[in-house]
Amino acid sequence: MRSVPRWALISSGSAPVLLVAGWTVAARLEGPAYDPVTQTISVLAAYGAAGFWVMTGAFFALGVCHLLTAWGLRPAAPAGRVALAGGGVAAFVVALLPAPSSGGSLRHGSVAVIGFALLALWPVLAAADHGASAPWALRPVPALGATTAMSLGAGWFLIEMNRHGAAGVAERLVTCMQSLWPLVVVVSCLWHPDHDEPST
């Protein structure tokens, strides 16, 4: 079993903190005009938004965290690591292609969907082929459960977007799940009895 470097705890643990801090600060800067229940996170990163640079910086930081975590998760299957890294790249592109303040953007929305899909699929793609000897979060059943939960959350988000409902709540739920699961995987690998202290 290849070991996970302990710095992966920092990259994976920082992802949800930076994301939530980003949308919290950006929403405060935006003021009462922004409704976190019905409006998406992308609204906070739109051109002209008061918290534009805060939310854009949070997207970039999230991308860096996912890329570093994918690099450090050596026990995970390569396909899962690539999908997680792809989710990190999607966060970069979302930041580089902000939605206009007037409304949605096909390019921005398409990249966001790709990012959602990659981050929903990576748990099941990362499930290591070690059976019961694998770290808990890299076993097929927990990984499939994580992918299912994230997929359902993404589906709920799309439904709320179409009905102009609680899209902000749905998006925050699914992005929280997607940003927390890498930390769960890293912790499960570090706590696994076969984990050896890495030299670097």
Rank of each mutant, 00 (worst) to 15 (best):
P5V: 07
R6V: 09
W7A: 14
W7M: 07
I10P: 06
P16H: 06
L18Y: 00
L18W: 00
L19K: 12
L19A: 13
E30H: 14
G31D: 00
G31Q: 02
G31I: 02
G31A: 06
A33M: 02
A33V: 12
Q39E: 14
Q39T: 06
I41K: 10
A46E: 10
Y47T: 15
Y47C: 14
G48F: 03
G48P: 10
A49N: 13
A50W: 00
G51S: 07
W53M: 12
W53G: 13
M55K: 12
T56V: 10
T56Q: 13
A58Y: 01
F59M: 11
F59I: 11
F59A: 12
A61W: 04
L62Q: 14
L62W: 08
H66A: 14
L67C: 12
L67W: 03
W71D: 09
G72Y: 04
P75R: 12
P75Y: 01
P78C: 07
P78N: 08
A79M: 05
A79G: 15
R81N: 02
V82S: 13
A83W: 01
L84E: 02
A85H: 11
G86A: 10
G88K: 08
A90Y: 02
A90W: 02
F92Q: 11
F92G: 10
L97E: 08
L97M: 12
P98N: 10
S101P: 11
S102K: 06
G104M: 05
L106N: 12
G109L: 03
S110T: 15
S110N: 09
S110A: 15
V111N: 02
G115C: 03
F116P: 01
L118Y: 02
A120W: 00
L121G: 09
L125C: 07
L125K: 11
A127H: 06
D129A: 14
D129S: 15
H130W: 06
S133M: 10
S133E: 05
P135Q: 09
W136P: 09
R139D: 02
R139A: 01
P140M: 08
P142H: 04
A143D: 04
A143N: 05
A146F: 05
A146V: 12
T147E: 01
T147H: 00
T147I: 01
A149V: 12
L152D: 00
A154E: 02
F157E: 04
I159G: 04
M161F: 05
H164T: 09
A166F: 04
V169I: 14
R172V: 02
L173M: 13
V174S: 08
T175D: 03
C176P: 09
C176K: 03
C176I: 14
Q178A: 01
S179K: 06
L180W: 08
L180V: 11
P182Q: 11
P182T: 06
P182C: 04
V185S: 06
V186H: 03
C189N: 01
L190G: 07
W191V: 10
H192A: 15
H192W: 04
D194M: 13
D194P: 11
H195T: 08
D196E: 15
E197N: 12
E197L: 10
E197T: 15
P198C: 12
S199I: 11
S199D: 12
T200Y: 09
T200D: 07
